[in-house]
């Protein structure tokens, strides 16, 4: 009747229990699987963009003579060519390039924060988390400007046909919304809002999470806990947001 606990040594198979076969904590694993599911969501958006784009005629003429029209899909670098304070200057992709650089840099500072966490170096974690938060906020501000410019449109606008009381009326459209835009078929602006908006929402929640981590770091929560694994988990999320941007940059702005 004696209740003796005996340790049964398992014969080799790591999946028999009592040990961690993936050598990662529950939280980290779940973050990985969440990110995998999120990758499916972003892929669905980007691939559907590809479907709608390939179902529309492409622009056929010379690239230099490009003008926006509802008749064909626009060349992205002819659409995204504005930079703040440089009104009317033709600078294709420069602003979005700056945004890409900012997000990659904030990913680097996040890696440095995770590395500092491994060393239990609170001062360094604080420093790098703060830079990461700054990077995220700057990126979001750039995106706000980009959206505002996209919605308000250019000085030129473009011609669009409307069916009003059974008659086709041609008038000039400026800027964009979910039903009509000056840049191309309605789907172009709709996808711009959905894809960059969904990504921007991820960046915004990432900034909130980063701030929580920063707050917990300065109040010494992770020092008392004995490890900085939360920095690593939120770091995974932040890198994923950067990863998605790399794809958005290529498939929405470059191709």
């Amino acid at each position: 009747m004696s209740a003796t606990a005996t340790t049964i040594k398992s014969k080799g198979n790591v999946w028999d229990g009592g040990q961690s076969p993936l050598k990662a904590s529950y939280g980290k694993l779940m973050m990985w699987f969440f990110l995998l599911s999120d990758a499916f969501t972003f892929s669905a958006l980007l691939i559907t963009y590809g479907l709608v784009r390939s179902a529309h005629p492409a622009y056929e003429g010379a690239a230099d003579a490009f003008i926006s029209s509802q008749e064909y899909w626009p060349i992205p670098e002819k659409v995204f060519e504005a930079v703040p304070f440089l009104h009317g200057v033709h600078l294709p992709l420069v602003f979005v390039g700056i945004m890409t650089f900012i997000l990659i840099m904030s990913s680097v500072t996040m890696v440095l924060a995770v590395e500092a966490g491994h060393r239990m170096d609170r001062k360094d974690v604080e420093k790098w988390m703060l830079w990461t938060i700054v990077g995220g906020i700057v990126f979001l501000s750039c995106q706000a400007w980009e959206w505002s410019h996209f919605i308000h449109g250019t000085d030129v606008g473009s011609l669009a046909k409307f069916l009003i009381n059974g008659e086709w009326i041609t008038s000039t459209v400026y800027g964009a919304n979910l039903t009509i835009n000056e840049y191309g078929p309605p789907g172009f602006a709709a996808f711009f809002f959905f894809i960059t908006g969904f990504h921007g929402t991820h960046v915004a929640s990432g900034v909130v999470l980063n701030f929580l981590i920063y707050y917990n770091t300065i109040t010494g929560v992770y020092d008392r806990r004995g490890h900085y694994e939360m920095v690593e988990k939120v770091g995974l999320y932040w890198h994923f947001v950067d990863l998605v941007w790399v794809f958005v940059f290529t498939f929405f702005y470059l191709v």
């Binding site: 691939i47 590809g50 479907l51 529309h56």
Partner: peptide, 14 residues
Amino acid sequence: WMLIAFIYEGAAIY
């Protein structure tokens, strides 16, 4: 798989 299927489908719609 989704990428291949959807781009193929888009071309067919075109």
